[in-house]
Amino acid sequence: MSRRLFLQVAGGLAAGAALPAAAQANRILPVQDIAPLIEKITGGRPIDKRDVTVELPSLAENGNSVPLRIRVASPMSATDRVTDLHVFAERNPRPLIAAYHFGPAMARAQVDTRIRLAVEQRVFVIASLSGGRFLSGETHVVVTSAACIDEGI
């Protein structure tokens, strides 16, 4: 068997083996409907999809601890500031990861933390601004070793 043929066969087998596992993970952890949670935050007001940067590694080796940085382009002045951040991961068993409420001494609309991600998914952040406006941003992450899906597998 030539090296090329071996690699083609082995690659095909690996891809075939990987697919059902991924499909199974998606079956167990479907995208949850976070619309009611968002509705509770915004009260149905519109969200602008801009100015919120969600920094995550594009490939996370371990879903148990994924570094996350959220930055919102905001002057953080007394009249124009970010008051709250809400972080969602729709394919986590509990999609609301964290909420942050900023007091007046915050210098920047930025937080760094570490989060758990069950599977490859998008991480979605809503920023509430003073004056009742809302911004959002999102990032897609690939997770190779998932967190918190021991149950049922």
Partner: peptide, 17 residues
């Protein structure tokens, strides 16, 4: 700053601001 965490925050929660 006030933060509310769910189960999606890693063990040994870290926060920087």
């Amino acid at each position: 700053l006030r933060a509310e965490f769910g189960t999606g925050v890693s063990a040994n929660p870290y926060l920087a601001f």
